[in-house]
Design a protein around this nucleic acid. Structure first.
Lengths: 331, 331
DNA sequence: CTGAAAGCGCTAACAC
DNA sequence: GTGTTAGCGCTTTCAG
């Protein structure tokens, strides 16, 4: 393994000079620089990053904890994280945790163990020991803890859900079902709350039986829709907490011989790529997924260099995207 | 920063004993072990992995080069890679390269730089210098190079495409269009070849104008379908080289007022989760995506410890999944 | 502008 | 069973 000492010998200088030439070429004399660089070239020398990291106590690695990479929304967030990270010279250690808290703790420990400099957690769970001596070097994004001990990047889910519900109300819907996300998720709670807000503001009483559990997968949307379609008094619209469930629901509704939106309107959340290409194209809330990633990285780097406080937060914008899956209430 | 020396002092032993206690507890005496462990506990000591890695010249990191994480098929492959990797104590450095060769080279260099122990490349491109002194520690999976200087994991794409084409022929289709993947991809070439094989075996001449370019995105499937639907002599079936394009194509066909499969049959490739939930559910080729990841990791670890040769290859199984998007040719 | 040398935290000979 | 010590490759004082 060709190391800095060998290069130093070849160039007839000290290892310090080689190091300096590579790090700050301008502080060595042109003659020396040339000698060193040509030795580096000739030896095919590549600094051993492991040693550099060890010496400098910086890994330039970021750990990203993602509940499931198979969700296309998260895939976009990760794209954004990686973009921003590599722009700043950081690599991304990806951990598809599937919500396994043990796995999340293990991976978070990579920071404690100095295999990584910081963590971006995309789920509402603190993977660090509560009573840790040092506050965690972490940013919580997308699905955030209410009491996160770190900067957060999130959407005002309550407001977004309210906007979508208002859209349905404007179309004349009065009996609206909802397919929720996982019970423990703050996302679910906030979106349900926004849904309730809008109904309350319109003086409509919510039939609690129209709140169906789901888990953000296509399958769960499909299953929940069965219950709603077969309800004694069928809703005229269904608001799904993400697009995957909405697509599952639409498929189910059509298989039951009903039409979307003529018989039932369906709305989603996220605006994934498939939303535009399902039948009918899906009305949904679009979120700047990649920007979540960019912001999370910016906050994390800021946290590491002290420019960002633990209580920092970024609320990302959303937009109602109306397509053809929602329409006037049937008369 | 609490290090091994501090723990040694606290326990009243040498650093070597602390190291031994942590690595092979059974070779130290029970009394010493207890002293050390309680000192570790009390100090909240965590070994500095950076130092361990540096010392042992092993990072236990794997770099994964993925063309685009937004593709749900790749997302599953990555899941599989991560599973297998963490089972063997390796972390995954994910690189969403978007096919940027410069980025791929940069990331591959993490191995040269000893930030990672090996690379899994999911695209048909060699990110290492051709004339490198040492052969690359890499496994090529999914989209493989014909002359990869490393183990490969792949599907027999030609055979799979032939099987799908035969399915369409059996349904009576004689005029079949194809929406291809990116021109440079060996996947595209092999699938087109399998398509040609099947037609040739059935004595059907292929109208080259029915071979449409695409790039594996929903959008490109949609666009390509426009051309096929408007062709002077419309095909009765379209074979798409992945499910995303098939879903885009179906949407386009329906918007043109045609029915799937009554007017045009559509087939995909990959069997992503959405394939089951589109309308109509998609006939496609299913691939064991996660297993690609598992196998790739197994080969890479084998390559590193010498148990696997550079010319190793694993051909993964596929299965024709017939759903409702393909049907009898219209009379 | 350059060299000598210390030392980051850990492991593994080697000696006892 | 345990301690002493060298050294992984690099950066960075500190002298010159």
């Amino acid at each position: 393994m060709t190391n800095i000492r060998k290069v130093a010998e070849m160039a007839g200088v000290s290892v310090a000079t080689v190091s300096r030439t590579l790090k700050s070429p301008d502080i060595v004399s042109p003659g020396t620089r040339e000698k060193v660089l040509s030795a580096v070239e000739q030896a095919g020398y590549r600094p051993n990053l492991m040693a550099v990291q060890f010496r400098s106590q910086k890994t330039r690695n970021l750990v990203v904890l993602v509940p499931t990479i198979a969700n296309t929304f998260f895939a976009r967030v990760i794209s954004g994280i990686q973009d921003a990270a590599s722009q700043h010279g950081y690599a991304v250690l990806l951990c598809n945790t599937l919500g396994d808290e043990l796995a999340e703790r293990d991976y978070a420990e990579m920071v404690t163990n100095r295999q990584a400099d910081g963590v971006i957690q995309l789920r509402a769970f603190n993977p660090f020991e509560e009573a840790a001596a040092h506050p965690p070097i972490m940013v919580n994004a997308c699905e955030v803890m209410d009491d996160a001990p770190c900067p957060r990047v999130y959407l005002d889910n309550r407001a977004a859900a309210r906007v979508m519900t208002e859209h349905l109300l404007e179309l004349g819907h009065r009996r609206i079902g909802m397919i929720k996300g996982p019970r423990q998720s703050p996302l679910t709670r906030d979106r349900v709350q926004g849904f309730r807000d809008a109904l309350a503001a319109a003086n409509i009483e919510l039939d609690e039986s129209l709140l169906c559990p789901g888990d953000f997968t296509l399958e769960s949307g499909y299953r929940a829709a069965i219950a709603l379609v077969e309800a004694r008094e069928r809703p005229t619209a269904i608001f799904c907490e993400n697009d995957e469930m909405a697509i599952g629901a639409i498929q189910c509704i059509k298989e039951q011989g009903l039409r979307v939106p003529d018989d039932i309107s369906v709305a989603g959340f996220d605006d994934i790529a498939f939303a535009r290409y399902c039948d009918p194209p899906l009305t949904t809330i679009s979120q700047p997924a990649e920007d979540f990633g960019h912001e999370a990285v910016a906050l994390l780097l800021g946290l590491m260099d002290g420019g960002v406080q633990r209580d920092a937060r970024r609320v990302m914008p959303f937009k109602l995207v109306t397509r053809d899956s929602t329409g006037q209430v049937p008369s």
